[in-house]
C-alpha cells in the first residue's frame, strides 16, 4: 500500500484486512460501510437475496473481528 496515505496505522491495518477478505464478503462490507447502502439496496445491486447479503455481511464482520480484535467494535 505504498501509494496510499493513511491517517493512522490502525487505518492501514483495517484497509489491508478488508482487502484480504474474500471478494464476496469484501464487496458487501464496502457497500455497507463506505457507500452507506442498506441491505435491501445491496441485494438489488448485486442481484442477491437480502438474507444472502446479511449472511455475507455477518461473515465478513466476523472475519474483521477475529483479525482486528479491539480495533473493530461489535456493530450495534
Amino acid at each position: 500500500m505504498e501509494s496510499l496515505t493513511f491517517e493512522t496505522p490502525e487505518d492501514e491495518h483495517l484497509f489491508e484486512t478488508v482487502m484480504s477478505l474474500p471478494e464476496k464478503y469484501r464487496i458487501v462490507i464496502h457497500l455497507f460501510y463506505y457507500e452507506d447502502y442498506a441491505v435491501s439496496e445491496i441485494a438489488d445491486i448485486l442481484k442477491l437475496s437480502q438474507s444472502n447479503v446479511k449472511v455475507r455481511l455477518s461473515r465478513g464482520r466476523e472475519m474483521l473481528r477475529k483479525i482486528l480484535k479491539e480495533e473493530w467494535d461489535d456493530d450495534k
Binding site: L4, T5, E12, F15, M19, Y33, Y34
Partner: peptide
Amino acid sequence: MTNKERYKRAFSALQSSGPLNLEVEEM
C-alpha cells in the same frame, strides 16, 4: 468512533492517491 466512521476514514485514502493496484481500483 463507530465502525463506519473508522472504515470511511481508512478508505478515504483511496480518494487522494496515485496509481492503484488492480484490486484497490476495483473497490
